[in-house]
Structure formats: structure tokens, C-alpha cells
Amino acid sequence: MEDNILSLLNSIYECQSACKYCFNACLEEARIDMMRRCIKRTVECAEICEHTASSLAYTGDFTHEVLSICIKACEECAAECRKHNHLHCMECAKSCSECAEACHDYMDEYRKIA
């Protein structure tokens, strides 16, 4: 189980980093007005990833709920980033999708044990 948590944490931190990078890159785009929703999603997703990683590290009582929120944030961020043809958005969407999948897998594994 510990290897699963470490793998999940790695995926969460990668997603958080991709979101932060995407946020900064979006701010540099020429038509920033079209990027507002993407900017908002990436900031929110990065913050939720940070909270999720902390919750996992402490094995809190609300880990399942926190993971559910992380999945939703990652899926929403990925969907928004896919609307844009920028490389940073495509990479962010990929990382967010992988993080959501990793959270799902962890929750499935956790249910088998509990």
C-alpha cells in the first residue's frame, strides 16, 4: 500500500507542477481574455492537488472525500485545457487526466483493503 501512496503522490505533484506551469504560460498568451477560464482552472487544480497530497501524507479521515474532489478538479482542468491548442495546455490536460486516473485507482485499491 505504501508504494501505491508514493506513486499517487508523484502523480499529484506532477499534476500540480503542470498546472502551475500552464497558469504562468497562459498569462503570457497574446489573447489572455480567451485564457481566463483555463487560468482559473489551473490555479484551483494546483491548490487542490497540494491539499490532497497533504491529506494523503497524514492519512486523514477525509482522504476519500479529498481524493474525490481532486478527481473532479483534475477532470475539469483537463477538459478546459483540451480546448486550447497550446503545448502547455495539452501537457497540463495529460497530467491532470493521469492524476485523476491515479486517484481513481488508489481509491479502488483502498476499497479492496478496507
Rank of each mutant, 00 (worst) to 15 (best):
S54I: 00
A79F: 05
V43Y: 10
C103M: 04
A53E: 12
T52C: 14
I48D: 03
L9A: 08
Y106Q: 02
K40F: 08
H88T: 00
K83Y: 00
N4W: 04
E65W: 00
L27T: 06
E75G: 02
R37N: 14
E47R: 07
R82E: 14
I5G: 00
S17M: 10
I71V: 12
N10H: 10
K20D: 11
A46S: 15
E65F: 00
S17F: 06
R31E: 15
K94H: 11
N4Q: 09
R37I: 09
C103R: 07
C99P: 07
Y21G: 11
S17T: 13
E65C: 03
L8Y: 03
S95L: 08
H86N: 06
A79H: 04
N24I: 02
S17L: 10
C103N: 04
Q16N: 13
D108R: 11
L67D: 00
N85H: 10
E28N: 12
C15L: 02
Y13I: 10
R41L: 13
R37A: 13
A57M: 14
A46E: 15
C70L: 02
A25H: 05
S97Q: 14
C38K: 02
C45R: 02
E2N: 05
E2D: 11
E50G: 15
I5F: 09
L67T: 01
E91N: 15
K94M: 12
C103F: 03
S54L: 13
E47N: 15
A18W: 06
E76K: 06
D33E: 15
E44T: 09
E80G: 07
C99A: 15
S7P: 00
Y13S: 08
M1T: 01
S7M: 07
E101M: 10
F23L: 15
A73H: 08
A100R: 09
D3M: 11
A78I: 04
I69S: 01
A53H: 10
C19P: 06
I32W: 01
A46C: 07
D108P: 00
A102S: 14
I39F: 01
T59H: 10
E98L: 13
G60V: 08
K112F: 03
D33I: 09
M34V: 09
V66M: 14
R111K: 10
H104N: 14
S68V: 06
S55K: 03
M1I: 05
R31V: 10
M1L: 04
K20R: 11
T42A: 02
H104Y: 10
N85K: 11
A57N: 12
E75F: 03
I113W: 05
M1E: 08
Y58P: 03
F62K: 08
S68F: 01
E29L: 10
D105F: 06
A79Q: 14
R82W: 09
A93I: 08
Y58E: 11
D3W: 04
E50K: 13
H51G: 12
C99K: 00
D33W: 06
M1Y: 00
D105I: 09
A93N: 03
C49Y: 04
A18D: 05
R37H: 12
Y21K: 13
Y106K: 03
C103Y: 07
E50V: 02
A18R: 09
E28V: 03
Y21Q: 12
I5Y: 06
